[in-house]
Design a protein around this nucleic acid. Structure first.
Lengths: 152, 152
DNA sequence: GAACCGGTTGAGCATGTTGCTCAATCACGA
DNA sequence: TCGTGATTGAGCAACATGCTCAACCGGTTC
């Protein structure tokens, strides 16, 4: 995956403020030709710059208003199996491997506190999991953003 | 923001596997009329179901191959000011308020380990921040997903 | 300097898509 | 039974797409 150049960044920034913009509109707004924008978009898409669209879908209206981060300590050797098991829990919407004292940072959504308790139990029951620490997310105080980096 | 019904979920699922699908193609694939899909999309968009498109852009090609989670302990009273200050750091791409012993979970991207050290320093220097704990992300072992929840 | 290269540009064209409107239909609960 | 809201199929003008082509520009290489 090659690095973005200034044209790519401008394009991504424009897409950020209007994801449904047509190629023509983008070309217009950026002062580029339609052909160029089309070629760039194709290249960005081919290079995998666009991650899954699910990232841009709000989970709350699905009936999961609560979100939590669960730090999971794992027997190192069994990390692979643990991740596979977590993949089987639908409420697990993301998991990062971490350096340091915590092994996995698992992001879950749930219906309510009771539901969270149940999910935490499911994770604890996974073979290879030693301990978990749950923190309820009280809100996304800084929503995911790339703008400031794209603008440099 | 009202809840998704089964048609919304099917639509979002279809969009997940092909975000650039045209309304016609979606209607075709779901066995709905074009009009219905168009109306649903408009409603979803109006209700804010689509979060910022930036969430679906890969930050790595921007020149920030490393990602880290920084747990930030804050003097409670000054949480608002701290968040405002963090907003001023471009490498901070997301921050959640947390219940429990940690106050903020800050997600940052950086160029290398040295860069991470610098950013951590910037966060520590913010008035109201008491302590930070940095964990380097070793990979997104379960990429963000809503599929399993949408399919239920 | 000459030849080459990738990226960009403007043009053109057939085909498909959008945004919009309308009347008809359907399922639902009041 | 009536009313309501969602859905449907149809139609239409305006527009966007995917594609191709020749031309051009700034580099690099020989």
């Amino acid at each position: 995956m090659t690095a973005y150049d200034s044209v790519d960044r401008a394009l991504l920034l424009a897409l950020g403020s209007d994801p449904r913009a047509t190629v023509v509109a983008l070309a217009d707004g950026l002062g580029l030709s339609r052909n160029t924008v089309q070629a760039r978009m194709a290249r960005l898409e081919a290079s995998g710059a666009f991650l899954s669209f699910e990232r841009s879908i709000d989970p709350a209206p699905l009936g999961f208003p609560l979100e939590a981060f669960i730090s999971v300590h794992v027997r190192q050797r069994e990390l692979g199996e643990v991740v596979e098991a977590l993949r089987g829990i639908p409420e697990v919407i993301q998991a990062h491997g971490l350096s340091g004292s915590v092994d996995l940072l698992v992001r879950v959504v749930c219906r309510d506190a009771h539901d969270l308790f149940r999910i935490d139990g499911e994770i604890l029951a996974v073979d290879g999991v030693e301990r978990t620490e749950t923190s309820l997310a009280m809100g996304e105080l800084i929503p995911f953003r790339l703008g400031p980096l794209l603008e440099r």
